[in-house]
Structures are given as C-alpha cells and as structure tokens.
Computed example of a mutant assay.
Amino acid sequence: MNLLDFVCTDAIVPDLKPAGKEDAIAQLVASLKNSGKLPGDEESAIVAAVLKREELGSTGIGNGVAVPHTKHPAVDRLTATVGLVHEGIDFASLDGEPVYIMILLVSPPENTRDHLRALETVSRHLKNDTFCNFLKQAQTAEEVVELLREADEGRIS
C-alpha cells in the first residue's frame, strides 16, 4: 500500500495554525470534508471519534509526528490527509516533544485490514528521519505530494 493510495491530496494543509491538539484534528477533518471526502453533517461526529481514540493514548508517536485515526461509518473507503504545523503543537506525544507532522486517517469500521495496512505504511515512512525532515520543511501542498510520491517510489532514504 502506498501513501498516495489513501492520502487525499486536495485536503493537505501545509500550514496548520491550530490553537491546540483538538483544533488541529478539527482542522484536518474539515479539510477532508471540504475536499468532498467526508459528509459535512458528520464532521463533528468524526472529530469526536478521533478525540475518543486519543483518550486511549496519544497518537503522537514521537519524532515530531502524530497519526490521529479512527474508524467511522460515514466513510466508505479509507481516506487520509496531511497537516504540517511549522511552529509545533503539544500533542501529549510519547516523547513529550511537539508535533510538526500530522497524518489523519479515517476508515470504514468494517475495513480493519486496510486501516491497519495504512497505519503500517504511514509508520514505516515516518520512521525515516530524512522523509520527516523534508516534510517539516515543505511549504506547499504540491511539495508534500511530491514527497509522498518520492517516499512511495522509495526515492527517499
């Protein structure tokens, strides 16, 4: 599975300026809604589902990265977006450091296999310090898309 198989490029937010963790999640869900990937009447329910998942343990996995995710019946296929917070935000990360890169995943409840494969794909790429450093420096959605493409093609090592 490749990143561009499920990341909605129209929903990428290269300059998130959230007031905090909840606001960052809400902005990313809104970007998916605005790109037509989520039904508008389900936006608050999806935000609530992601925040409920965060209560189980932060998805701030360290190295400036968070992967908030949920399963929700409002979607019929796995979808995701990327948000960059250049100033960093407190995400209650495992390493206690600020988060700069967020990848939000939403998938249908019955599609556990693809959800887990997507999480594995995201985690594998985000363990690559070079990839993360390039992402943190990206200023436009186009630059983010190109980095995702290069990661999918194995050109970032």
Rank of each mutant, 00 (worst) to 15 (best):
D90N: 15
H125T: 04
E110T: 11
D95N: 10
A80Q: 03
I103V: 15
Y100Q: 00
V106D: 04
H72R: 12
G96A: 14
L78N: 05
C132V: 14
G96Y: 08
K127G: 11
T79C: 14
I101W: 05
D114V: 09
A74Q: 13
D76F: 08
N128D: 11
N111R: 12
T81Y: 08
L116R: 08
P109H: 04
P73N: 13
S123D: 05
L116D: 03
K71S: 01
A80L: 08
P98T: 06
V82R: 01
K71R: 15
L105R: 13
L104E: 08
L126R: 02
H125G: 10
H125W: 14
R117M: 14
T112G: 07
C132L: 09
D129N: 10
A118N: 04
L104C: 11
T121A: 11
F134D: 10
R77K: 14
V106H: 06
E120C: 13
L78H: 09
H86N: 01
P108H: 06
I103D: 02
N133R: 10
L126N: 04
A92C: 12
I101P: 00
S107L: 10
L116M: 15
L84W: 00
L94Y: 10
R77L: 08
I89G: 00
G83D: 03
A74N: 11
R113Y: 05
V122K: 01
H125V: 06
K127L: 14
L126Q: 02
R117L: 15
R124C: 04
